[in-house]
Design a protein around this nucleic acid. Structure first.
Lengths: 188, 188
DNA sequence: ATTTTAGTGTGAGGTAGATCACACTTTTGG
DNA sequence: CCAAAAGTGTGATCTACCTCACACTAAAAT
């Protein structure tokens, strides 16, 4: 477990270096959680108390449309943050679902604890601001890719950009992320 | 001009209330800029020194694909922030273009000044963190809408969600935002 | 005031990708 | 170890949306 905490510290310190005292305050606020493949991290219509940092494993965040089809918003693996950020931030019931593609372990941070840390440790406020900003930029890129590229181009770019992910995710889920059917993807 | 500053203060104070002293420090860091319709706020391949808060007017942020077609990432009007946030944050040349759909006025905030304010005034750090977070959530919604809805549904939802915007933007630009051709949009 | 230029509507035909159906393989769980 | 479930490939057909073409209107520009 201690080495998991060290990983999280390292992750945060890629953006801002903490003193040992600061780190102690931070580490105290995270709790550990472990789930098996297929178990839910977040279920629809439930409140979302935490955001989650992935120690190990792989999750998908998705919505189900009126025809029962799954559309994937995010794959998250080691060192990624995931949650229904809207539900988490605004304390409303979840509109997206997150479950585990592999057995997974998480560090969980409650909303109150995040706000406490941001308030007490300016560096953490900075950290989350920068993280949010990078997240925003990544989503902009994804929107542009949905607007400008064909499904096949999106698939090829995903392979280039996240080769490790491709190995771990069944193609039918990649299709649900790229916005095509699995049949179409299999013809590329 | 003074009333423009008051608007900006009010905008910031929707998230965190400032003392008069804090506001003085903040206001000093913004500069004023005005552009006519069709003029560029950000041009491709140029460095992006600022992010922009719109006092008055309307802009579009877009990319041009290999076929010369325009794809719109964001419309921004009064009280919105706009920039090529990737270029701005990482000090790399712009990959998107922003120009004015109407005559527009801006408050400009340089990267160094934003970091200065975030560092000196924790409330501003908080403000930008929350803003980024909301931005992230809005883009997630847009991705879901691109993945799950037909073009016609996206159009109808846009009309519901931003009726004021529709009045001010030619339909061919709405089409470029929704990811359809103007011909298809005109048949809905 | 009149000539460009930008915006819009609509027909005809083409295409990327969806849908449905079935066969086959791999993984999972008891 | 075997049955059930999940994942994958491929053919046949269908459709939402694209492309190209042209006509008309509204708004800028000189």
């Amino acid at each position: 477990m201690e080495q998991h905490y060290q990983l999280l510290r390292k992750h945060i310190e890629e953006i801002c270096v903490l003193t040992d005292e600061e780190w102690d305050v931070v580490a105290q606020r995270f709790t550990y959680k472990s789930l098996k493949k297929h178990q839910f991290l977040i279920q629809k219509d439930q409140l979302v108390p935490c955001e989650y940092w992935i120690i190990k494993g792989l999750t998908k965040a998705y919505a189900i449309d009126s025809n029962g089809k799954e559309h994937i918003l995010q794959f998250a693996m080691e060192q990624y943050w995931t949650s229904d950020f809207n539900a988490f931030q605004n304390k409303v019931p979840a509109t997206i679902i997150i479950d585990c593609i592999e057995d997974s372990e998480f560090f969980c941070l409650k909303w109150e604890d995040r706000e406490y840390l941001c308030h007490e440790i300016p560096k953490l406020n900075h950290f989350f601001r920068i993280k949010s900003h990078y997240g925003y930029i990544a989503l902009q890129q994804r929107i542009l890719s949905l607007l400008t590229e064909t499904a096949e181009e999106r698939y090829n770019n995903l392979i280039k950009k996240m080769p490790k992910l491709i190995q771990r995710v069944p193609k039918k889920l990649l299709a649900a992320y790229l916005g095509v059917t699995r049949e179409t993807l299999s013809r590329f």
